[in-house]
Design a protein around this nucleic acid. Structure first.
Lengths: 161, 161
DNA sequence: CTAAAATGGGCAATGTGGTTGTCGAAATAG
DNA sequence: CTATTTCGACAACCACATTGCCCATTTTAG
């Protein structure tokens, strides 16, 4: 039997993946808001992840996120305004400015990791640990690889800048 | 053993879901571009889905997409420019304007459905039909429900307008 | 039937994010 | 010491979303 004849319309699959993603991110941010980070947005989380605990240059952040350095610079500026990151001059290179997470930024990142673990545990409890592991394995097999430095040009990608 | 101790970091799950979604949508649009719709964007597809073959009012489209009527109106304007939709006065209600897909819009929607079926078949071949079905079942169980009228305020949701 | 309320659609202003182009300052290559 | 490359930022512009406001029309209330 063909894979298209088992009664599941093909367009449902992307919707389910998106719904799963959104569910996790929404719950993350709801919890993050409760824990003192009400103004953190998904885009900020990805950017902070790209900055990392070690810090990085704006260009490097852009590279990790898969966006232009200008876009990265703007997002970093936003994180600065929100108190999540700061820019300091690189003593070794007068052109560069090292972007570092503030303690508040580190706190947000740390809490996010904990919350994500909790959410995954919830899914594991609902589905069974092996079914969840299988789901992850499956996605890893068919989806384009995701690294630590994610691809987060999701906004522009979706809207089509 | 706890679900958090099986070596899989929690933050990978949302990334995998996003990667899966993006993979499908990217491949859809690559194929759509080959088939005569090079300027169709993901957002347009969702909007056309919301308009549907029967047509709808701008307000209704906004409701289905989960965005304001102004936002829906602007997206519809965009679809008009691209030749995918058209606005006609509703003879029964002078306030309303019925948004309808043009033949080109219907073509894009029809082709999308076919392409999605093909993509799902590819996944089924790679994973096995039952593993894919199980993946869908799992997501259906833990993710917020997705209807026909999807939630596509994904852009603003992500960026935080 | 007329006046008030609700509804549909569009305009304007604003916010967030992304893009390309450009430019000055600093590092590096020759 | 020049020439090129790289970093970071500014400007202009696009796409999408939001809220506030306004006008036309339909519906509902009195």
């Amino acid at each position: 039997m063909s894979a298209t004849s088992d009664g599941r319309p093909g367009f449902e699959l992307p919707l389910l993946l998106l719904a799963g993603f959104r569910t996790l991110i929404d719950e993350l941010h709801a919890e993050l808001a409760r824990q003192g980070h009400p103004d953190a947005r998904p885009a900020h989380g990805f950017a902070m992840q790209a900055i990392g605990l070690a810090g990085a240059s704006a260009t490097e952040v852009g590279r990790r996120l898969g966006v232009s350095k200008q876009a990265a610079g703007k997002t970093i500026g936003r994180l600065e305004e929100l108190g999540y990151a700061e820019r300091v001059d690189d003593p070794a290179d007068g052109r560069r400015k090292l972007v570092r997470l503030t303690p508040r930024g580190v706190d947000a990142l740390t809490r996010s990791a904990v919350i994500f673990e909790g959410l995954r545990s919830r899914w594991a409890a609902a589905l069974g640990a092996d079914r969840l592991a299988d789901l992850e394995d499956s996605l890893r097999a068919v989806a384009a690889p995701v690294g630590i430095g994610i691809d987060t040009d999701t906004v522009g990608w979706f809207a089509g800048g």
